[in-house]
Write a protein that binds this DNA or RNA. Structure first.
Lengths: 153, 153
DNA sequence: GATTATTACCCACTATTAACCATAAGTTAG
DNA sequence: CTAACTTATGGTTAATAGTGGGTAATAATC
């Protein structure tokens, strides 16, 4: 079956019970070891980030190397985990997104779902449009820095 | 059964008898060898730290490597253990948190419970908010140090 | 040893969540 | 072109979770 990465953009809606359908294409892209489970959390912007359970386990492993003795380490670990929730999708392919995440992303009913290779973003359509006009803009300097970064990896 | 780590944030309340419900999700994440038991103690901040019995045993092992000859080691070991109390939860999943810990965390009734992978934190909502605005903030330098730390592990 | 306070053990209620069933629109296959 | 299947969406029922209170057992105090 096709690629096992998340690509493309979809416009779905959340029903009265807070359930959101995950595009079939994305569900099929989940590895077997993720056990029909996505992990949702706060995204970097005013949105919701979604990972496969596998990807999340990787993140956890990294966080576990931090020291519980150091304040900065605790703060980082706390911020990374306090909003994270594993969600198994039901027989129809839907997950129930926690209310506090919906609120953080300013989502009410309509939603844009964006595939970003190894992660997924969920946006409120209006907020997304606002960001497109401002924060998403990159100048030549940004592009140059990114080019440098990718070459050094 | 799903993931066996603690993630997410919950807002619960302590009842008139001083009992606090542990989120079902966290109880299920407890390994069999922890025998329905959490260990509570003072957290690094103005909060209460909660560990699985297994995790606490690990911490004890670490403390045993310290030297009883060195003053600082004795002080650290003393501070880490004098407030630690193992608590078995009742048939409804609740534990009775010792009064001195509640006082230390400034908790009266309302409580925020935060999952941090291999440990749990209990906060007073107002105090948590205060810390969010100050101590939780990390600057670029902190982040860089953490990135370095995880990469070297 | 009697009295009081504290802790453990049940039972009960309600709201939320999860499991189940159903359908209409759209796709794919024969 | 039609039949079988998939997909997105809606609703209903059953189970679980969180909370509150009562009673018996235990511990502490006088």
């Amino acid at each position: 079956m096709g690629t096992n990465t998340f690509t493309g953009e979809f416009r779905y809606s959340i029903d009265a019970k807070g359930r959101l359908n995950i595009p079939a294409k994305f569900r099929k892209a989940l590895p077997e070891t993720s056990e029909d489970t996505f992990v949702v959390t706060r995204g970097g912007e005013e949105n919701i980030a979604v990972y496969s359970l596998d990807k999340w386990r990787e993140k956890e492993q990294e966080l576990l190397t931090l020291s519980s003795k150091l304040r900065a380490h605790r703060a980082y670990k706390r911020q990374a985990t306090r909003f994270a929730t594993p969600l198994k999708f039901d027989s129809q392919g839907r997950v129930a997104i926690p209310a506090n995440l919906l609120q953080h992303a300013g989502v009410d009913k309509e939603v844009v779902i964006i595939g970003m290779i190894d992660e997924i973003e969920i946006w409120d359509p209006d907020i997304l449009k606002r960001y497109e006009e401002t924060e998403f803009q990159l100048d030549a300097e940004d592009i140059e820095a990114i080019d440098k970064y990718t070459r050094s990896s």
